[in-house]
């Protein structure tokens, strides 16, 4: 027997009413409202590729002779943009003199605005100074989110492992000239292969809100990371998904 329209209405309303609604994360909404909007990200990527080619041509044959990772480097340093979304599977961009291999990613540029960036290392341990040297050597320059102070620079912070005997954790932070800091991005306990996580944070007193890169992770992922960071616990490994630039597994050195 065919269900009447009223019955159908009731069924649909009951079904929709049973959809569990998460709590509204007002800080995330505010951060999204403050963040620049990417209207055509696919065109942005196209533009990036074109811009990279133009830069390569402008710089001449020596650049063309370089490897693909170096070309990325050129894009970063010459255009002052961070890395565009990278194909899954991981791309080793640099190898330090000590044999530590680093992977940049994932990142997703939003128009001409800021990009998130994460750095992973396959090294079991890496000294703070070494990490700083390596990062600076690649010319990392990450444009801060709109409305925030410019002049950010990347520093690495080494912290003891969460448990005695565990390797140190190395964190990269972006610090601004004003003393505020944002973009706390784990590279994880170095013995763990972290999947790409890119998040930009603004730390304001005790509250950390997401300011940029918030489209890269899902809301639940961001919440999990934020909770862990606020509790000063290891940030959970999450995957932003390959389409959004996932840093794939990288081999141990």
């Amino acid at each position: 027997m065919m269900a009447s329209d009223d019955v159908l209405r009731g069924q649909v309303r009951r079904a929709m009413g049973r959809v569990p609604v998460p709590t509204l994360d007002l800080s995330a909404v505010q951060a999204r409202a403050a963040a620049p909007r990417a209207r055509r990200p696919h065109l942005t990527r196209t533009w990036m590729v074109g811009a990279a080619a133009m830069v390569a041509l402008a710089l001449g044959a020596p650049v063309l002779a370089r490897s693909v990772p170096d070309l990325y480097h050129v894009v970063i340093s010459a255009l002052h943009l961070t890395v565009v979304a990278r194909e899954p599977g991981g791309q080793t961009l640099a190898q330090s003199a000590q044999g530590f291999r680093y992977t940049i990613g994932p990142a997703r540029c939003k128009g001409a605005g800021p990009c998130g960036i994460s750095i992973e290392t396959s090294a079991r341990t890496v000294s703070l100074a070494q990490a700083e040297r390596d990062a600076a050597g690649w010319g990392f320059r990450v444009i801060p989110p709109a409305g925030l102070p410019t002049g950010a620079h990347l520093v690495a912070i080494r912290e003891p492992g969460p448990m005695p005997g565990q390797p140190n954790q190395v964190w990269f932070q972006l610090r601004t000239a004003s003393g505020g800091q944002f973009t706390i991005q784990e590279i994880g306990p170095p013995h763990v292969v972290w999947q790409g996580t890119v998040t930009t944070w603004v730390q304001d007193g005790t509250q950390i809100v997401i300011s940029n890169g918030n489209r890269v992770l899902t809301a639940a992922q961001r919440n999990a990371i934020r909770s862990a960071m606020l509790a000063r616990q290891p940030v959970p490994a999450v995957s932003a998904g390959p389409a959004r630039g996932r840093a794939g597994p990288i081999a141990r050195p």
């Binding site: 049973r18 569990p20 999990a224 959970p236 999450v238 995957s239 390959p242 389409a243 959004r244």
Partner: peptide, 21 residues
Amino acid sequence: RRHSRERPAAPETLPACPAPT
């Protein structure tokens, strides 16, 4: 639309959404 252009996401390690009543 954006999702349809992209590849399927990798499995995530986060807990699933709470079960419905």
